[in-house]
Design a protein around this nucleic acid. Sequence first.
RNA 1: GGACCUUUAGCUCAGUUGGUUAGAGCGUUUCCUUGACAUGGAAAAGGUCACUGGUUCGAGUCCAGUAAGGUCCA
Length: 924
Amino acid sequence: MPEISKSYEPRDVEAKWYAAWQDAKCFSAPTPAPGQEHYTIVIPPPNVTGILHMGHVLNNTLQDALIRRARLEGKAACWIPGTDHAGIATQTMVEKHLKKTEGKGRRDLGREEFLKRVWAWRGEKGDHILKQLRELGCSCDWDRTHFTMDPGYSKAVLASFIKLFEQGHIYRGKRMVNWCPVSLTALSDEEVEMKPTKGHIFRLQYELVEPSTTKDSEGNIIPLTHLVLETTRPETIAADVAVAVHPDDARYTHLVGKKVWRPLGERIQIPIIADKAVDPAFAAGALKVTPAHDKVDFEIGQRHGLPVIDSINADGTMNEFAGPELAGMERFAARKKAAEILQERGNLIEAKPYENNVGYSQRAGVPIEPRLTQQWWLRYPRVEEAKAVVRDGLIQMHPERWSKVYLNWLENIQDWCISRQLWWGHRIPVWYAKGVDREKLTEADLRDPKKIHVSLDGPADPENWTQEDDVLDTWASSWLWPFATLGWPDAEAQAKANFSHFYPTTTLATGADIIFFWVARMIMAGLEFAKPGASIQERIPFKHVYFNGIVRDKQGGKMSKTLGNSPDPLDLIVKYGADGLRFGLLQIAPLGQDVKFDEDRIESGKNFCNKLWNACRFRQMSGPMSDNSSLSAILARLDARQLDDDDHALFAALLEVQALLEKCFADFEFAAATQGLYTFFYSDFCDWYVEVAKARLADPAARDHVLAVQDLVIRQFLLLFEPFAPFITEELWTLLGYNVAGTKFLQDARIGTAEDLRGALAGRSVHIDTAAAGRVAKLKATVTLARQLKADKAVAQKRDVLFSVVAEDAVWTALESASAKFTRLAGAASLARAASAPALPAIVTPLGTLYLDTGVKVDAAAERTRLTKELEAVTKHIAGTEARLNNEAFTSKAPPAVLEGARKQLADQQAKRAELERLLAALV
RNA sequence: GGACCUUUAGCUCAGUUGGUUAGAGCGUUUCCUUGACAUGGAAAAGGUCACUGGUUCGAGUCCAGUAAGGUCCA
């Protein structure tokens, strides 16, 4: 057996094992055996040309932990990886690259040539992120890697469109959309981010065609020559078609039906209308109505049969309808110019600084432009079912509160604009008969096969048809992810992928930021498409949704490359090892909270791995390795006669942590799981058991038994730890001989439950003595107090000091039997029983009063100070407890166990006080 | 405007159905290279649990309100 080196060097280990796992096809999803449970996860597909960031690390570490744990539990585990074509993001990236390298735009190349370039880009940069996931240790079934633009997947996307079209869920319509003037495409509402934006609001006056009068605040009749209104967008005035007031606004009712002069563009009269959408409290209570450039205005225009004047081009520049002064200008420059002109003409009263919410294109980061265009829309299918599955708990969200957010969105759901004016994506499978005017198609025309052709393969006579230019929104492909990655809709592919076994998937781990974009839509898509006619339980895409937090920087800010506060995970892996990164990150990832990234925690993850490494190294140095090839082989090496309190306490702690992990995985409490593992291994095993065992290892009768206990605990710990730190655990599994011939890897072992282990121990006559843990705790406390006393006397490092104890017979018996452990742990030459109190520094412990002999004369004053401080604390505590026990309401109403506990506590504290008083009195 | 979340040690967070003297890691201070580990060990200091009120024998925990910070939707 190779010797374990002095420190853990992750880099040597990681590459070796990942290659071995892949060679052995460890991550291939097996065909589930009859009755075998499956555990399926589909990866949230990252952008195909993306690179790994901390958010990915967290998200994928969680998934890997889940899938690895499932393997150890004997489930048929299937983790499907893949990437998303990410329409806008990728197209924008390639366009930028083209501009930079060739000075060309996509239109210079033409659609076909441009797409060739995108595919070439994908070939060069694509899937890099999947390689990075391997560095992290992710155990995806790589043979199942999918890409949303693969032929099979594309077929699924188009098939879903056709099906929805045939069912009447999809329609085409000219509507107000969020237009991105940079990407030159429509966006869905979800892709628009509202951001408070500083600008100006312009107080304007529009001249009345016929001067009128109004009343001032005191009721006096005063002349009225202008209508005052406020706007943040003066550049659109030339597209104004009316001015609206609220119908109940007494200031203006007499003006409704009259006209004002439009101050920009062609000098024409526009009507004053009344509409309830106007807020009479805002500004002067009048609103300029610009149907082409505002959603509310558009609706007002519709209600009043007003024309639509579109004064802004697709790219955000003004056109001729904006008036000769503004035509051709960029929209924000035009805004300034418009204000200047209005000032000159006397229409501008004032320009005030103003902050309002402006919609920004999520991708391009520029304000969107409401724009009237022809788009394809989807009326979501299965909305009611989608609500029901979450409300009824068929799909559980973790943390649960997200289901409220989800349901709220579904309650207010709007049709989805699924068309994008991009080239990179799934081109909509609709062909228009030549000669048909696309602008004027009616709902009936859409269903007329002579005018519109909708199919997977296109019309038989393509020369007579023209295909739709638009592609589908990326999310209209990724919403099929949980089943399109399992072969849907092709029966043969589904059979090959074991669709019937692995769908519905088990858990989806993702960020809450895409709950609408992706999670909600997947649920609707799954219900609609996945298993037609099957029960609702069979059609849902997943049973659990775990929302991991967002990784933020130490100050809680968002991580971004431009700010430079986003560490490269690959650098962290080099520095701390993949296991250290994984474990460290999960330690700070509480359920449902954002993660504040702190590199110190990653370092602590690495240090923990090193601790584990050295504990195993020490085990190897402590004695010969025996048969570790199975749990029963190790159990057979236990000697029930040699069991002592420490063994019992350790086994009890092991069972406890094993049960804790079961609960944590069920509840997605990863931070609690890592915390539990850490505490068990550090405190219970290394700091205590291994240390006390050093004393027992010297005893030939106990040695083999103690080694067996350690082998058992390390084995179980490695199994528990593997989902979080797969590399180091695999390495140690091998080095300590836990692998058996035929089953080469840790993952081939079965973890079993805490109860299984309890049963296995009982089978070897090891029945956990639950009282042992209490006795060990007392000894621990006594050792700590002894160390405290030594530290106080500045002899912490000395190991030749003498301790004596004054204790009753029963207590002394307990301490005497552990005296070898005590002297080793407390660092003492000996521990003896003293018949009467010696004149030495003392400390009161649960196992009697300890006296420390350092060979130096007692400093009575220092002793008095120390003991008095202690006495004060105890006295204060006693007072509190007595007050409670003297309260009749407490004694009559508190449960007996609580009452009993309080009484015992009081007795203990009183005994301690008496002892402290005695010690003080004895001081000369 | 609506909904949700957070507030506990210098920092990051635990604290399960209300029940001892509120815990951990990091950081800080002191001491220690003795044969698993200095990527380590020992000890210590550090908290009126945001605030106000209520329920209760008992509140960090439950309820109401207030404040500050954050997120999402309009």
